[in-house]
């Protein structure tokens, strides 16, 4: 089967610093992949380049079997790729419900329709119910706690019915109960056929959830495989512990 997401020779430099150096990897459809690596190894840059937030200096990206020239966040979302951010980002001035409704990708003439249509509202309320946020649906999202914002960000991404979700540190800064909740939702969505690529520092979370695990070091993948293989990989240990 062809890869859902494939990057080839992705390179990105900031001044003299090489953030991504000829980075290539593939994500198969239906996988729950992790992207790990020491600080500064280029994980977030990889996310930004793949989702079109930063232009790559070189390299090729294909998604869903087709090459995406000049990736753009809006177009990629419409092709089925969605992402969350390291610091949970919501629209603080919009209500929780509107935060979710917004993410429903639509043709341009839908701009003339009602702000929150009946069908959109129903779908958004279902999603919020699943994430335990239904009681807050009319509160401005800026009033939610950090953990709730993480859940809201996750829920809103799902509104666009993506085939691949890129999560940037889903467990950073949330309490252990919330980590379990987020893990539950990842597993549930994965069960429904959504693929994931997750950047994460919390190793026990990665090891129990993800397969394959891709390890980045200095902007290029040094290992890729099942959690156990990667954990015992010599180069991975070197990268984390220093050589």
């Amino acid at each position: 089967m062809s890869a859902l997401l494939a990057v080839e020779g992705l390179t990105k430099t900031f001044g003299g610093i090489v953030a991504l150096d000829q980075c290539s990897f593939e994500i198969a459809p239906g996988s729950l992949a992790a992207l790990i690596g020491p600080n500064g190894s280029g994980k977030t840059t990889a996310f930004n380049v793949i989702t079109g937030y930063q232009p790559a200096d070189a390299g090729r990206l294909s998604f869903g079997g087709r090459v995406v020239r000049r990736p753009d966040p809006c177009r990629l979302q419409r092709l089925g790729m969605a992402r969350t951010f390291q610091q949970a980002r919501v629209f603080p001035g919009l209500s929780v419900l509107e935060n979710v409704v917004l993410a429903h990708h639509q043709p341009w003439h839908a701009l003339l329709r009602r702000r929150v249509s009946v069908t959109d509202r129903r779908r958004a309320e279902d999603l919020l119910g699943e994430f335990g946020l239904a009681a807050h649906s009319h509160v401005p999202a800026g009033m939610l706690s950090y953990g709730q914002r993480k859940l809201l960000e996750f829920a809103s991404v799902l509104m666009g019915e993506p085939t691949l979700i890129l999560l940037d540190e889903p467990t950073a800064g949330v309490n252990p109960v919330m980590v379990d909740t987020i893990e539950h939702h990842i597993r549930r969505c994965h069960g429904e056929g959504v693929s994931f690529l997750i950047v994460e520092h919390e190793m026990s979370f990665v090891m129990r959830l993800c397969d394959p695990v891709i390890v980045l070091d200095r902007g290029r993948p040094i290992a890729c495989g099942a959690p156990q293989e990667v954990q015992n990989d010599r180069s991975v240990l070197d990268a984390y512990l220093g050589d």
Binding site: R89, F91, L102, R114
Partner: peptide, 26 residues
């Protein structure tokens, strides 16, 4: 204000980059 255009504009006001990533034609 009462159309999706208004919702999209408010999203641009709050966080334009994220709005792009959610498929809003900013």
């Amino acid at each position: 204000r009462s159309s999706q255009l208004g919702l999209a504009l408010n999203a641009v006001r709050d966080d334009e980059d994220r709005a792009r990533g959610l498929g809003v034609q900013t």
